[in-house]
Write a protein that binds this DNA or RNA. Structure first.
Lengths: 147, 147
DNA sequence: GTAAACCCTAGAGCCTACTCTAGGGCAAGT
DNA sequence: ACTTGCCCTAGAGTAGGCTCTAGGGTTTAC
């Protein structure tokens, strides 16, 4: 059993445009064509596509995904290269996770302030500090007066 | 005390180009200029810039960051809008975290396979399945022979 | 007073990742 | 046969986020 490009688009959430773009970019060398030139996706292809989405969702570049897929197409001899590529990518993902967690904390700090009962007072204080900073440096106050 | 654009670039890790681009994009309306038109950053400006980086690092679009900064410039009256904007962004960040964690698991699954002592055997099995899939659908085998 | 090292703007260029259009073929139902 | 709804390619266009160039003024050290 095989799937048309439209069916695959529905299954994956990618657009037909994107799938064709991925193919053009060398990400889908494993997808077969029928006699009319139509793409025919197998279940195995969907698994590989799932891996591609996984890499894409973790912000791997198309060019690097292509490298990985090329290794896969070359068979078991490329296990070491695949491992090296994924290990390096893994580190980036872990680093991104740490950064997100850190930044989320700062966003939460701001949110807590905005949600507090005395939010306006706290924001006014913040503003006072920023204004004092400008004054101290002999600079104009860029903030709008809310009088 | 104020900082030049170069000093701010060094402190933040952003390039001078990027800082000017951010200013042009309306992200830095609070930065003052001296009589020669040179930007003069205060410590308060650096704090705001830090917030901007925080939002940028969590993949907020420049246009949305501009909206947030515009609220900040308008003073304490915009607390509700700031809260709404950040709350919505927070949800996106949390969703991204979940997706990253999920995808990292899948990457780790692959990595474990590639690092296992029987990696080659397992990859061969994977390949066998993919090939069987193609055969079953009456399609050509796209994988390279490693004989 | 001059060279080196800054600063500025406007606007062009670049890169990634799509997204869409034009022009045309194929497949299924009536 | 013909309409509808798919499929295809090539290539143009778009959006976002920088990055750089050209042309020109300023500041600092000697």
């Amino acid at each position: 059993m095989t799937y048309t490009i439209k069916e695959v688009a529905e299954k994956t959430g990618l657009s037909i445009y994107t799938l064709r773009y991925y193919d053009k970019s060398g990400l889908l060398p494993f997808v077969a064509r029928n006699t009319s030139g139509y793409r025919e996706f197998t279940d195995g292809d969907l698994q590989l596509l799932h891996t591609i989405c996984c890499l894409k969702n973790t912000d791997m570049k198309i060019a690097d995904i292509r490298t990985y897929i090329t290794y896969v197409m070359q068979g078991p001899d490329t296990v070491k290269q695949r491992q090296a590529l994924l290990a390096k990518h893994r580190e980036k993902v872990v680093a991104k996770q740490a950064q997100l967690a850190q930044n989320l904390q700062e966003i939460d700090y701001k949110l807590d302030m905005y949600r507090a009962p005395d939010a306006v007072a706290r924001v006014k204080d913040e503003l006072r500090l920023a204004k004092a900073d400008k004054l101290l440096a002999g600079l104009a106050d860029p903030f709008q007066e809310t009088h």
